[in-house]
Simulated assay, not measured.
Amino acid sequence: MSVSVSSKITSLQYILMNSGLQVSVFFLALPRILAEQAGTDGWISLLIGWMITVAASLIVVKIMAKYPEGTLLDLLTHYGGKWAGRTAAVCLLLYLFYFGYSCLVQTAMITKEWLLPQTSAYMIILLLLIPTYIVAISGIRIIGRYAEIVTLVSLWIPLVYLLPLKESHWLHLLPIAGEGWQPIGAGVPYSLYCFLGFVSTFIFYPFLQNKSQASMAITVSNSLTLLAHLFVTIVCYVYFSPDEIREYNEPAINVLKIIEFKFIERIEVIFIAFYLLVFSLGWIPALYICAYCTNWLRNTQAERNHVRFFCVLLAIGSFFFIPNFHQNERIEQIFLRLGILIEYILPIFLLIYISVHDRYSGRKRV
């Protein structure tokens, strides 16, 4: 499917969209999850996860460089035939639809818990779907501009996290690797969970104005994600004790409850209200990619209708079933394994297949 000039995105827009997919609602519980697996050495697991993610992302970029004017679906159709592309479209559609659904549901549950306790989660999802539809139908370029605006208005959030450091205890981080490397290794798969989302490169790559900067852009994007997760995780580690941090579902929110100003009493409420914009970067690009996949499968130019379909599907599905926190955690365990398979393992085999195919075809032509 050809890419029009009006749909081109800048490297900055790509960086912010990809990082937005990664730094979504999942980061609120990340310090607790890493503490349960690796103790206060969870930040080391994050660094290892970042290195693995950068390597996997560069593999994805190298794959897309083989077919720069098309998405993964076009590439697989070129190398494996029509059904290979269609199979990839369906798998990517299902994967990212659940990705967006999970972000949306968790956002609704957190909003209900902290902001609107008297409002049903279903009604919150309906309210969130209205701006989602407006932005998603506008195309990838508008989504990129939306990501820029969200980033700009959210720059104050890291500054708020500096305030709890006045009551921090840096000795909580010591000794480093005190229990050995086995707990750190156990935390690495969970650190990979917070980097899931770079699979968007398979679709966004042909939209980049300057494809020579793709490797740099994906590395910067993953590095921004690392800085965000690492900063919040360390703040929680040095404020809460190693045992206390495991008592909170979202320690990234609880750590803000100690902050008080004369003109505002509960800073965490304002934080969540503003962070809803950042949360939206988790499901809006995901739904757009889902619409792109169905549009590609039907060979049409009606992405708006497909976005409308997915929004209605989410609204109807949420009416009948919304998982609670415990059910959501069990589902996330499955999603973690699936995400590692799709975003980390399959690209390696795909690169090997393409390399062997190109080498064999070159020899055959000779």
Rank of each mutant, 00 (worst) to 15 (best):
A56I: 08
V220M: 14
I316A: 09
L346T: 14
Q327W: 10
S223G: 11
Y14F: 15
V61P: 12
M51E: 02
W114Y: 14
A121G: 11
I253L: 15
L75P: 09
E329R: 10
T233E: 02
I63M: 00
R330E: 13
G187T: 08
R304W: 11
I15K: 11
L350W: 00
T40R: 02
H357M: 06
T132D: 04
L346F: 14
N295Y: 00
Y292W: 10
T107A: 07
I234F: 04
I352C: 10
S19E: 14
I157D: 11
F240A: 12
S215C: 10
L73Q: 06
Y248E: 08
L127M: 15
I272A: 04
I184S: 11
I63H: 05
S120W: 00
C194P: 05
S280V: 05
S223L: 13
K82T: 13
H229A: 15
D358I: 03
Q22I: 02
I137M: 01
F231L: 09
Y190W: 10
L287E: 05
S154Q: 04
Y205I: 02
L174F: 08
P323N: 03
L350N: 05
C194W: 07
L21I: 00
M17E: 12
R359S: 06
W283D: 09
K166V: 14
K66H: 13
C103H: 06
L163F: 14
W83I: 08
L224Q: 06
V278P: 01
P175T: 04
K257P: 02
Q209S: 13
A89F: 00
V232M: 15
Y122Q: 01
A291Y: 00
T71L: 00
W156S: 13
I48Y: 02
Y275P: 03
V23R: 14
Y133A: 10
R32A: 09
F99M: 05
